[in-house]
Amino acid sequence: MESSTGAGSSGPLWRRRKEARPAEITAAALEVFADHGFAAARLDDVAHRAGVVKGSIYLYFSDKEDLFRAVVRSAVVPDMETVRGAAERFDGPFVELAPRLLLGAAAVMSRPSVSRFARVVIGESRNFPDLARIWHDEVVSPMIGAVARVIARAQARGEAREGDPSLYAFSLVGPLFTAMLFRDVFGEASDDPPNLDRLAEQHGQTVLCGLLAAPPA
């Protein structure tokens, strides 16, 4: 008689293994996309790294773009959501929120998976426009929208200058994104790649001087 805790085809271990497969596949795909880019990534390589047959991938993902979206959602979006949620829940003055927001964004952008995926999107979105749509809808738009709403609330309280909150949001996080790409592309060739934490701290103080309705004390 087969034990209910054994590795039989109908036992709990098998069910746990089946439930874990989408995560195992996306983890393997993260490595393949990061190493080879999107165009050169092969589902055979993903399957090999995940320890499954290629056909198993199609049980969970319709095609390579669907798998790319799942990888972005699992490897990038949760960290962005943490920063976004903390910013939207913060009810203190904007002069305290902006530095925290930038430091949180810097921590996320310092992770290799984020910068490497951003580079894949930038490099291959002309040939694969859906990559740009996925990155925009899952990462960029929610983050810029959250920062813009925070700035709009600060404007409503008279803390921030009048102006387009979305443009202010780009001004706030844009330098971090540029520095992230610089580090990823030129890191080994540069003698002094930008430190994202220090940039966030310095840029936060600089931008506040122009964004706040009254200069910070």
Score class of each variant (00 low, 15 high):
residue 2 E to N: 08
residue 2 E to V: 09
residue 3 S to M: 08
residue 3 S to H: 12
residue 4 S to V: 13
residue 6 G to N: 06
residue 9 S to G: 05
residue 10 S to I: 09
residue 10 S to Q: 12
residue 14 W to N: 15
residue 16 R to T: 13
residue 17 R to D: 05
residue 20 A to Q: 12
residue 20 A to Y: 08
residue 22 P to Q: 10
residue 22 P to R: 05
residue 24 E to L: 10
residue 26 T to G: 01
residue 28 A to H: 03
residue 30 L to H: 02
residue 33 F to S: 00
residue 34 A to L: 07
residue 35 D to C: 06
residue 35 D to Q: 11
residue 36 H to I: 09
residue 36 H to M: 09
residue 38 F to H: 00
residue 38 F to K: 00
residue 39 A to P: 01
residue 40 A to N: 13
residue 41 A to P: 00
residue 41 A to E: 02
residue 44 D to L: 09
residue 49 R to W: 04
residue 49 R to E: 04
residue 50 A to T: 08
residue 50 A to K: 03
residue 51 G to N: 10
residue 51 G to H: 09
residue 52 V to K: 02
residue 54 K to R: 15
residue 55 G to C: 08
residue 58 Y to P: 00
residue 60 Y to Q: 04
residue 65 E to Y: 05
residue 65 E to R: 04
residue 66 D to S: 14
residue 66 D to W: 06
residue 68 F to V: 06
residue 68 F to S: 00
residue 69 R to L: 11
residue 71 V to T: 04
residue 77 V to W: 02
residue 79 D to K: 06
residue 79 D to A: 12
residue 79 D to F: 06
residue 82 T to G: 11
residue 83 V to E: 00
residue 84 R to W: 03
residue 84 R to L: 06
residue 85 G to F: 10
residue 86 A to L: 04
residue 86 A to I: 03
residue 92 G to N: 06
residue 93 P to I: 14
residue 93 P to N: 13
residue 94 F to I: 07
residue 97 L to W: 03
residue 99 P to I: 08
residue 99 P to M: 09
residue 103 L to F: 04
residue 105 A to I: 09
residue 106 A to Q: 05
residue 107 A to V: 15
residue 110 S to T: 07
residue 110 S to W: 03
residue 112 P to L: 10
residue 113 S to T: 15
residue 114 V to S: 01
residue 114 V to L: 03
residue 115 S to N: 03
residue 116 R to N: 08
residue 119 R to V: 12
residue 120 V to K: 01
residue 121 V to I: 03
residue 122 I to Q: 04
residue 122 I to A: 10
residue 123 G to S: 15
residue 125 S to H: 09
residue 127 N to M: 13
residue 130 D to T: 15
residue 131 L to D: 00
residue 131 L to P: 00
residue 131 L to Q: 00
residue 132 A to C: 12
residue 133 R to D: 13
residue 133 R to P: 01
residue 135 W to S: 00
residue 136 H to Y: 13
residue 141 S to V: 13
residue 141 S to E: 15
residue 141 S to W: 15
residue 142 P to K: 07
residue 148 A to L: 09
residue 150 V to I: 13
residue 150 V to M: 06
residue 150 V to L: 05
residue 151 I to F: 05
residue 154 A to H: 02
residue 154 A to N: 08
residue 154 A to Y: 02
residue 158 G to Y: 13
residue 162 E to R: 15
residue 163 G to Y: 14
residue 164 D to V: 14
residue 164 D to E: 15
residue 165 P to A: 12
residue 165 P to R: 06
residue 167 L to T: 15
residue 172 L to Q: 00
residue 172 L to Y: 05
residue 180 M to S: 08
residue 184 D to N: 07
residue 186 F to G: 01
residue 187 G to S: 13
residue 187 G to F: 15
residue 189 A to D: 13
residue 190 S to W: 12
residue 190 S to N: 14
residue 191 D to I: 11
residue 192 D to G: 07
residue 195 N to P: 01
residue 196 L to Y: 04
residue 199 L to A: 07
residue 200 A to V: 10
residue 201 E to W: 10
residue 201 E to G: 08
residue 202 Q to T: 15
residue 205 Q to W: 15
residue 207 V to G: 01
residue 210 G to I: 09
residue 210 G to V: 14
residue 211 L to E: 00
residue 211 L to T: 02
